[in-house]
Simulated assay, not measured.
Amino acid sequence: MGIDENVRPGGVLVQPGEPFGGLPVPLGVEPVSIRTMVGELTALYAPAVTRGPNPARSRGTVLLVPGFTGSKEDFLPLLPLLAARGWDTWAYSQRGQADSASPRNPLNYRLGEFATDLLEVADVIGDGSPVHIVGHSFGGLVARAAALRSPKLFADLTFLCSGPKCWSEEIREMSFVVRESGSLGLWEASNPDLVEIGAPPLTSRESFHRYRASQTSPDNLLGIIDILVTAPDTTEQLLNTGVRTLVAHGADDDAWPQQWQEIMARALGARYEVIEDAGHLPSEDNPGLTAAIFDSFWGAFPPATPGRAPLATHHAFQARPTQQSAFSY
């Protein structure tokens, strides 16, 4: 299934897009853009592989949400693997990330605005049916906030290397670097070995991370830093929504305390998985095992019943102008 005017999910709200940053796009994955109230959010779409001697229908729709300093490209190795297992799989760059719409002012990057974007995207691609949503690191905070507002839109929620509450105040030091040197300055400060005199040439992925940092909105980074140090623990409220949850992280995840993640899983009564041979970005470090864990979780329950969830953020869309890392927290 390609991005065709008559068959693509979301109709005119989803349009063909362009690859970003020079990384190769796997066969079966298509760059697209999704029209939202903030502007065009860029995305990658991997239609479910349903061809073969016994063609099957898609098993459901999946939405992958990236973290701090990240983008949709963090999921490039994972997208075709999930599609091969029968899932219509989408990943998008959040506002201010990479080539997505980038409104000015850090006040446009509060948790509520990020959650609104997620709900709009999920509503478009799910076409009224609940969506399997995965939030990576900061993306988990966004997904949690969205689930608290519109739980009926969630078939379930997966926290990938994401914890229950804010980090320490130490991360605030990053905001001083961003204000002084911008988004690229933060990348350079975090990768001194790659920019020092005499350092070897950057690999293709390092070059991509550097370019992505240069295109990421400083206001996005400042807004997210503020969220990361002030976000409350809403685990109990999420439990009360009844949304099924999975908590998974890499065995070597060093960005969000693993103990926090395990405690959160217990509090939610969630399935808890440790992904071997992976750090903070299992979708790149061990995409095969990550895909298998997700597939097992999503496939353990009958498909969600279609039916448009009532959204406070659902609008009659009109034409809107397009607006224009190495951490991936």
Score class of each variant (00 low, 15 high):
residue 103 P to Y: 07
residue 73 E to T: 02
residue 77 P to Q: 11
residue 115 A to K: 08
residue 279 G to E: 07
residue 167 W to N: 06
residue 239 L to N: 04
residue 42 T to Y: 10
residue 52 G to T: 04
residue 3 I to E: 04
residue 222 L to M: 09
residue 274 V to D: 00
residue 148 L to E: 02
residue 122 A to V: 02
residue 324 Q to G: 10
residue 179 R to Q: 14
residue 27 L to C: 09
residue 200 P to L: 12
residue 93 S to T: 04
residue 65 V to R: 01
residue 39 G to L: 08
residue 279 G to W: 04
residue 314 H to M: 10
residue 276 E to L: 07
residue 18 E to D: 14
residue 328 S to W: 06
residue 88 D to A: 08
residue 11 G to C: 11
residue 232 P to K: 01
residue 200 P to V: 13
residue 209 H to M: 11
residue 55 P to M: 03
residue 173 E to S: 10
residue 241 T to L: 15
residue 318 Q to Y: 03
residue 198 G to A: 13
residue 111 L to M: 13
residue 295 D to A: 13
residue 85 R to N: 08
residue 26 P to I: 10
residue 146 A to M: 04
residue 307 G to A: 12
residue 113 E to A: 13
residue 132 H to C: 01
residue 275 I to W: 04
residue 58 S to H: 07
residue 188 E to D: 05
residue 312 A to N: 15
residue 167 W to E: 06
residue 208 F to N: 11
residue 183 S to G: 06
residue 287 P to E: 13
residue 329 Y to G: 04
residue 142 V to Y: 00
residue 169 E to I: 09
residue 192 P to E: 06
residue 231 A to G: 05
residue 99 D to F: 09
residue 286 N to I: 08
residue 240 N to L: 14
residue 175 S to C: 10
residue 269 G to T: 06
residue 127 D to Y: 05
residue 176 F to C: 11
residue 118 L to Y: 00
residue 151 P to S: 12
residue 288 G to H: 09
residue 307 G to Q: 11
residue 35 R to N: 02
residue 277 D to V: 08
residue 191 N to V: 03
residue 48 A to L: 07
residue 300 A to C: 06
residue 255 A to Q: 10
residue 101 A to F: 07
residue 168 S to W: 05
